[in-house]
Each structure stands twice: as C-alpha cells, then as structure tokens.
Amino acid sequence: MTPEQEQVIEEQQALLEESANMYTGEMEPETKTVEPPKTPEYIEVANGVPAGPGGPVMGAPVSRSAWSTGLFSCLGSQDEFCSSDLEVCIVGTFIPCVLYGGNMERILPRRSSFGIHCLSYSSLYFLGNCLFNMNSLAPCFSYPSRTALRRKFNLEGTGEQIANTFGCCGSVIDDDESRECCESVLDCAVHVLCHPCALCQESRELRRRLPHPAFSRPAYLPQAPPMEQHMVLPMV
C-alpha cells in the first residue's frame, strides 16, 4: 500500500471518529406507546325502559283507550257530533239494519259492503221475529263488529271496564289469550242483552274516528270520448 493510500484511510477514520463523538451525547427519540383503555370492573346499567326518539319502544305495552261515549249514552255527549248522535239514535231504534250496514261499511270499506251486511241483518231480523217474536238471531250475527272495532282502535273491552271499576278478575285480564276470549264472549252478551244500545255506541265511535268511505274516495273525472278514426286504404 502506498503512503498516499494510507493517508487517505487515516483521514477517513478520523472523520468517522469525529462523527461518532458528535452523536454520542444525543439520545434516540422516544416512541410513544398507546396504552389500551382500562376496562371497568363492572358495567353500570340504567334502570327502566328507554324511550325512543319517535315514541314508545317496540314491544312496550300500549295502554288501551276508552270509548268516546258510554253504552247508554243514547243522546251522545253534547259536542259537535250532537246532531249525528241523534240521527244514530233514531236509525238504531227504527231501522237497525241500516245502522249495522253503515257500521260495517266504515270498518270494512269494500265495495257493496253496506248492501251485503244490511241484507244479511234484515234476513235474520225478520226470521227471528217470525220464529221467536223478537230480534234474537241478528245480535248473534252482528256481535263480531264490536270485536273488530275494539281491535281496530285498541279500545277497552267490557271485562276490562268491569275489572277497572270493581277491581276483580285481574288475573284473567293479565293473560292476553284469556282476556281476548273473555272479551269476545262479553261482546256477544252486550249485543244480545242491549243490542240497540250496542249498535248506537259503535256507530258513534266510528263517526268520531273515521270519515264516511264516500268522502275518502277519489272524485270521478269525466273523460272525453275518443275522436273518430278513419281507415285509409293504400292506392293500388
């Protein structure tokens, strides 16, 4: 090795030693370690039923609403439906078949619903009067309308009203299946024992809650007849 090469190597070693001495006092940058969040020993749970932003929580029990008028409120409650309540009382007394047909037309707004139920009621009305000299068959046919009305608007049944008033039969009301079976039997009993009053109460409730189906149907728009058309034969 020549003296020149040895000198170059010595200079390089000197530069390396100087650079090593410069970084000897510096420390390496510390790396920040993120500690995982500590899990609590127990989790606090809020008591009660949480309320949703749009209303009651799904699955929560819904309270039943009361009837607008009582069973024996034949003249209704002196409000804006006073004239309608008087009309219901008169129609239910003299032509109950028409009142029953109107009730079913509101509960089941289908085509010819009024005529079908009114005709069926009239047939049983005259048959009962011929056989038993009283309207005894039509109430047994018409009581499902009261059950359908209760279920449609979640109304209180007769058994529930008795239990809330006198504080009895609470165990039967707690069971949904037993309560519904008991309420259906009581609906039949109400129609058999107080048939005109039951029809009038149902009609008053429906008139306060639902408009007549004729007002909710779209208006008839007359259409112009098509223009005359002519066939043009091709030239031969």
Rank of each mutant, 00 (worst) to 15 (best):
Q161H: 03
L119A: 15
Y125P: 01
N164A: 11
P196W: 03
C169V: 06
S120D: 11
E180M: 13
N133D: 06
I95S: 06
D187A: 13
C97G: 14
G92Y: 02
G92D: 08
N103P: 04
A198C: 01
L124H: 06
F114K: 11
L124Q: 08
T165E: 09
Q201T: 08
G102P: 05
C194V: 03
C118E: 04
L124Y: 09
P109H: 07
I173Q: 09
E105M: 14
F94Y: 03
H195K: 00
E183L: 13
I173E: 07
V172F: 07
P109V: 05
T93Q: 01
A189C: 09
F153G: 08
Y121A: 14
M104I: 06
G128H: 06
L149N: 07
P144V: 09
F141V: 06
H117G: 10
E202K: 07
N103H: 05
V192P: 01
D176M: 09
G115N: 10
G157E: 04
E180D: 13
S203T: 15
P139L: 11
S171C: 09
G102D: 15
T158G: 12
D187W: 10
I90L: 11
L137P: 00
V192W: 02
D187M: 12
L186S: 05
V172K: 03
E183G: 08
A198M: 00
E177C: 11
N129A: 13
N154G: 03
P109T: 08
A198Q: 00
C194P: 01
D187V: 12
V185T: 09
S145T: 08
N103G: 12
C89H: 01
P96H: 14
C188I: 06
R106C: 10
C89Q: 01
V91T: 05
N129L: 13
K152W: 01
C118V: 04
E202G: 13
G102E: 15
C188A: 13
L149K: 04
M104C: 12
V190T: 07
S112H: 12
Y125D: 10
T147Q: 02
L131C: 07
N154A: 05
L155F: 12
C197K: 00
E156G: 05
I95Q: 02
L108V: 15
L99M: 10
S136H: 10
Y100D: 14
V192A: 09
C188K: 02
M104G: 12
G157H: 04
I90T: 04
K152Y: 01
L137K: 00
Q161W: 05
G128D: 03
G159Q: 02
V91R: 00
C188P: 04
I107C: 06
G102Y: 10
G170W: 08
G115E: 12
H195L: 01
D176R: 08
G170C: 05
C181Y: 14
F153N: 07
C118Q: 06
G170P: 02
C140L: 15
S145E: 11
C118K: 02
S123T: 12
S203Y: 14
